[in-house]
Design a protein around this nucleic acid. Sequence first.
DNA 1: GTCTCGCATGGTC
DNA 2: AGACCATGCGAGA
Length: 885
Amino acid sequence: MSSASSSSQVCYNSDCKELKSEQPRKGWRLRTGEYAELCDRCASVYEEGRFCETFHLTATGWRCCETCGKQVHCGCIVSIHTFTLLDRGGIECMKCARKSVLWTSNPAWPASLCFNSLLPERLKDLSVKNWSQLAGSGPVPWRQAPSLFNSIIPPPPELQSRIPFEVDMSSGINKLNSSERLSTSPLEKKKIDYFSERLMNGSLKLGAREMLENGNAGIKCEENYSSGLSQQSSPLKEEPSTPKFGVTLPHSSPNETNGQTGICGTHLGTTPTSLPKQFHGNLQSGVDLSVEAQVRNGKPRIDARGRNHLLSRYWPRFTNQELQQITGDSNSVITPLFEKMLSASDAGRIGRLVLPKKCAEAYFPPISQPEGLPLKVQDAKGKEWVFQFRFWPNNNSRMYVLEGVTPCIQSMQLQAGDIVTFSRLEPEGKLIMGFRKASTAQSSDQDNETSKTGNGVSTHGDAELADPSSWYKVDKSGYIAKEVLGGKSSISRKRKSSTLRPKSKRLRIENEDLIELKLTWEEAQGLLRPPNCVPSVVVIKGFEFEEYEDAPILGKPTIFATTDVGEKIQWVQCEDCFKWRKLPANALLPSKWTCSDSLDPERSICSAAQELTAEQLEDLLPQCNLATKKIKAAKQELDNVEALEGLDTLANLAILGEGEPLPASSQATTKHPRHRPGCSCIVCIQPPSGKGPKHKQSCTCNVCLTVKRRFRTLMLRREKKQSEKEGETTRKKLPQQQPPSPEKVQDDDSQPCSNKGNCSPKQIRGANDVSDDETNRGKCASPFKGQIDLNIQPEREEELSPSSDSGSMMKLLRDAAERFVMQQRLPSSGASGSASTNQSKPSGDGGGGEKLSSLVALSSNHCDADEDSPATLCIKESGSTPATG
DNA sequence: GTCTCGCATGGTC
DNA sequence: AGACCATGCGAGA
């Protein structure tokens, strides 16, 4: 930024006259946007907050703080941040003001806010005049610190939009927002006064940070920020990654924005089209320095209160790039209106985009009939879409929707979690619909595909928004109270985060966790290993449970095979040398296995030769190549997401399998009415994903135990359902020849548990229970008889049933399992028999190129008599082959 | 049976 | 407690 008087060698302080040093120091910012260049002495004084005391002592404008009595200079540009005007008259230094009022929001907001409605007409006029004068006084009458709003809590668009002057809301805005809320009206009044005075003074910029942080709006604050501008003084200022909010005067030239998107109150009496490209960018801050604002600069808008109520999550967070893309090379001014993260239903086939009520009422044409009206919206490519903007009566309120958005959403390739942005292009008044993909939405500074406008002109009157003021309503105070005047900084952050994350749990599942789950899912499918232990039976509340020393773990993918002599083995690839090593089939591997972990001393170093010949390897690999790749990919991801490791993942899967959404990270599940304090179910006892200690294989904590139990139950139910289904099918096919087997009947009758999902493995083994391991299994008596899984919730049985289509993830599970079943027939190397294994078959052949779909099954039938592994967790090798583990 | 529409429900803030 | 809003769901086409 250029500095004032750079051409002069004399200190800018007229009371000084000393020569500037070679490297003149910047003082306060001037109306031109430049900075006063001061000599060292003056700069120091200024920085120390003693400038007025030093140089303006004899000047007029000194007033006493009504609270502390401290003298504050109110008559110069240097001190504008140091005091506030009181409703009752008089002034209050910022320190006191902060104490008494807590500047919840930057005075600038109220300024804008009050400007229209609260400010006395006279002041308004004055302000306007001032503004106009300022606006016309130079290329950049005012500039704000670049980091205004600092990205956390964007100022309400409404407020910003009507800020007819520069507002220097440096990063402190967060704190402003987060400051304790105060009663709106007194504060607003103060703010009004504050701003009016500044306006009258011909300047207005706020050192929000000082005001809030220092509280001592003292001169000190003033220094840092009044100069606020002294961009170097704030570490936040040039933070490139920090969303910036700025409000610049109309005439600011684009190149002076210094990387910050200035929100221009542009139209101030100028012809919009004649303006240089300007942004009403609100950046992170939902700045809506829209035309309304601009137009209202001359005549402050009065009816734009609605936006005050916008929730922060709808505040547009446009980046410079986005804005630039939207406006392109045109001279248009883009006015970010709001944005919304697409919910599953928004992005679904229904084609209805639910609009935030406040946004709809604030930015879209008013509609009185539910049918609404067609709304023309231009997308990022310049294509125009016509949506039906309408509402549904809902709880004595309205629910606004845009209908017919599917084609548009699809053309943008949007899905749940992505963000659509609505902005308005001025002067055309066109509604612009942009978007941000979820992947980029999190980093606002990243480039995104946000709209690039075309030049189409909306033909629909309403959509044109030619006179937005006509459909603004509401009251602004609410907004401040609700959104601007934040509570504590934590709240501020919370709110921010809430804007970055989907609002609801459902949405979170759709967006983030689903992705996360997808990874874990595929991963877990292939990596699950049965606990290497023999189940023991414990009695809990009178019921017997099988428990295992080891919890299911995620291990390294291996290829199971049988040697020529019938020995069951598994092949594992070294992480380092990629050579394949042979291991006993029952060996449990860590997720990262290297030669050094080999049990075979001869093969325990990477330099040792690989036993497998290339041919043998080829025989092995084709079937599992794809799956292995997937595993690797997933594993890579897994490595990056530690939270998904091991039991957490399993726990998630278990929960998931139950048809319950995976609780979002750090979020306690509250969806289970049966869960009460003390509930020990997996949902309640599980720590938030990624939190808490890692579970070892031998962990016997509640979570692990429950995971095991739940998983077992889950799979049992699934198998049972499948069995029943297939049995039914079989009976239908052979109604006479094959009546239900006595065994099954007996099982059904003998089952002490009325709960279907809580049946013995034996019971669940139906007609399809035919496999090469059948013999072994057949030898087993079900140890489950008479046992009940306490986790079973009869009333939720349907929901929980793996067979229930209601659980999409369970469906996934089933699909995956079935696919796996089809693909997983891994021929043993050198063995003609099936590579039956009681262990996981991590390397599904991936024949379909589909997800790794080994069926993760907790073979609760520890009865399964595979002596190699009594583990309870196994990967089904065949759909008709129950877990042999 | 599928799709669309409109309202109802319930979770979240 | 009330408002908002994501989604469910029944009715009708």
